[in-house]
C-alpha cells in the first residue's frame, strides 16, 4: 500500500537525519580532525605552501617531529593568533613580512628565542629582543613592461615614478600588502614626513593605480595593463617564469640614493607553545643551510644569512639596501596610515 510505503520512507528519512547528526557529533568527538596532540608541532605559515612545505617535510624527515601546517595569509593568521591568545594553538608562526611579527611581539603573544644560526644575519633583519628572526628577504623593486617602457626610459629611482609621462601607468599594491605599508613608512623615515607626503601625493595625483594585491601588480605589468609597478623582487622572477615581458630595477642605488627596502620573512615562536623544544629545533632548522637553500631557491627570495648562495636572485651584497629597523617601522606605522589614507 502506497500509504505504508510513504510512512516508512518518512520514518527512514527521520532516522537517517538523526543518524547523520549523531555521526556529526562523533566526528567532532573522535573524527580524523580531532585536536592536534601535544607531540605535533603546529605551524601557522603565511609563506606559500609550495615554498614552505618542502622545508617542513625535510624537517619531519630529519627530526621525526610530526608537523601540522596551516597555510594562510600572514595577516589573517596573525589575527587568528591574536584571537587565540588565551589558549594558543600554534607553536610557530612564519610571516611573509616581519612587521606583522613586530605587531604580534607588541601584542605579547611571542616567546623570545635567539637562535645560534641567526648570528650571521644583519641586525635589521631580526628582532633585537629575539621575538622573531628573518629567514629570507624581498627587495622593493620597480617592475616594468618591456613592451611599454623603452630601455632608455627605465626609471632608476622610485621618485621618477611621479613623472608626468607615467601618468596612469604605475601600479602598486595597497597597504593590505604589508610590504607596501613598510615601504611607505620607510619613505617617511628617510625623506621626512612632509617630503614623503608630497611625493606620494604626486604619485596619487598622477593616477597611481592602487591594487588589492602584489600579484595584481606583477600580472598587470606583465600583461601590459600597466607600464610600471612597485612590488617585491620575487615577483619579478615569478613574472619571468610565467613568460611575461618584464624587466626589473633595484631603485635608488646611486650614491645619494636611499637604497631599496628589504622586507624580511620571519619566523617566530608563540608564547605558550606546547612544544617549545621542538619549536626551537624548527627555528634552528629553518636557518640551516639545507632549509635555507629550499626556502630561497624555491621562491626567489634573497638569503639573509651571509654567505648563502643566492642562486638566480641578486644577493643582499649586490645592491644598496635601505637600512631601517622593523621596530622603527612599527613605530611609524600608525602615522603612515594616517598620512596616506588612500592606500
Amino acid at each position: 500500500m502506497l500509504k505504508t510505503v510513504e510512512t516508512t520512507a518518512g520514518r527512514n528519512a527521520t532516522r537517517r537525519m538523526i543518524l547523520l547528526i549523531l555521526a556529526w557529533m562523533s566526528v567532532i568527538a573522535l573524527g580524523p580532525s580531532a585536536p592536534t596532540t601535544a607531540s605535533e608541532l603546529v605551524i601557522y605559515s603565511g609563506r606559500k605552501e609550495s615554498a614552505i612545505k618542502p622545508a617542513v617535510d625535510l624537517f619531519e624527515q630529519r627530526t621525526g617531529v610530526k608537523v601540522v601546517l596551516k597555510t594562510g595569509k600572514t595577516s589573517g593568521l596573525a589575527n587568528e593568533i591574536l584571537q587565540e591568545r588565551r589558549r594558543p594553538r600554534a607553536d610557530i608562526f612564519i610571516a611573509t613580512e616581519a612587521g606583522v611579527c613586530e605587531v604580534l611581539a607588541r601584542g605579547g603573544v611571542l616567546d623570545p628565542y635567539a637562535p645560534p644560526g641567526a648570528r650571521p644575519i644583519p641586525p635589521e633583519y631580526k628582532s633585537s629582543k629575539g621575538f622573531w628572526t628573518g629567514i629570507s628577504g624581498r627587495a622593493r623593486v620597480i617592475l616594468y613592461n618591456k613592451g611599454l617602457v623603452r630601455n632608455e626610459e627605465v626609471p632608476s629611482s622610485v621618485l621618477d615614478l611621479a613623472d608626468a609621462k607615467w601618468r596612469g601607468k604605475v601600479a602598486i599594491a595597497g597597504t593590505l600588502e604589508r610590504t607596501t605599508l613598510s615601504w611607505l613608512s620607510a619613505l617617511v623615515q628617510v625623506m621626512g614626513e612632509s617630503k614623503a607626503k608630497a611625493y606620494v601625493d604626486d604619485l596619487v595625483r598622477g593616477s597611481l593605480k592602487i591594487l588589492p594585491d602584489n600579484s595584481d601588480v606583477w600580472r598587470g605589468v606583465g600583461s601590459g595593463e600597466f607600464a610600471l609597478g612597485l612590488t617585491n623582487s620575487p615577483n619579478y622572477h615569478l613574472a619571468l617564469k610565467a613568460g611575461l615581458p618584464v624587466g626589473v630595477v633595484y631603485p635608488d642605488q646611486g650614491q645619494k640614493g636611499m637604497g631599496s627596502l628589504v622586507n624580511p620573512n620571519a619566523v617566530a615562536i608563540l608564547k605558550g607553545a606546547k612544544n617549545l623544544p621542538e619549536a626551537r629545533r624548527f627555528v634552528d632548522f629553518i636557518l640551516s643551510r639545507e632549509a635555507q637553500a629550499i626556502l630561497v631557491g624555491h621562491a626567489f627570495e634573497i638569503p639573509l644569512v651571509r654567505g648563502m648562495d643566492a642562486g638566480q636572485v641578486r644577493p643582499l651584497s649586490s645592491f644598496k639596501a635601505l637600512t631601517i629597523s622593523q621596530e622603527r617601522l612599527a613605530d611609524l606605522e600608525e602615522r603612515t596610515i594616517k598620512l596616506f589614507p588612500g592606500f
Binding site: 556529526w24 567532532i28 585536536p35 589575527n79 587568528e80 584571537q83 587565540e84 589558549r87
Partner: peptide
Amino acid sequence: GTVLGLSLILLYNTYVPWIYGTAAMVV
C-alpha cells in the same frame, strides 16, 4: 566571514576549547 571567523575563534577557543581546533568549527 572574516570577522565572524575571528569572533568564533575567540568564543570557542575560550569557552568550548574541545570543539575549537576541530572541523566542527568549519561546520
